[in-house]
Design a protein around this nucleic acid. Sequence first.
DNA 1: GCGACAG
DNA 2: ATCTTGTCGC
Length: 193
Amino acid sequence: MDYVLNFLRLLQQLIAKNVVIEHFGLENARSICGVDVAYKGEEGIAVAVRFDGNSYQHNVVKGKVDFPYIPGYLFMREAPIMLKALEGLSCDLILMDGHGIAHPRKSGIATVIGVLLEAHTMGVAKSKLVGDVVEEGGVQYVVVNGEKVGVKAGKYYYSPGNKTDLQDALDLSMRGYPEVLRVADKLSKELKR
DNA sequence: GCGACAG
DNA sequence: ATCTTGTCGC
């Protein structure tokens, strides 16, 4: 499995070179999607929820998940099934569990999916993967090598995935935990029964 | 060698 | 993520 991780690391470095960190502006997101995955042993249940400001809609995908969870390589385990769940949904902004550039190689799952789909994405994680939390002007930033790569608000970490920036992460964090993610999490966990 | 370690 | 009882608090 050593070969695989070496290769995947190169892939992540390539992805990191293609990330686009630029201001999006949440006000430009007419539709926001949230994706989450729950497990029942080897079976993964992915749910993608879309909210367009008026109504909700969602996709459910179940399938075997082979790749193990390895810190730093989450995308290999969850990106495939997440992408399937997102099929057919048009989302101006995609949110998902996990980090974006707040990653050892600036290539968290939100970045991988964002670059792959050329979409606006943002990672929302429940715990830190890398960096130090530094407060500045009333805001808690996730800092890696002196660079601010994310924002911590409450117990959540927000970091740009692709075609979004730190300002977007801060703006999103101030809206509180995204409802689409709360719904996706709740739905995926109750559908595995 | 030791500690850290998204879901 | 999942396993898994009781317990503290609004």
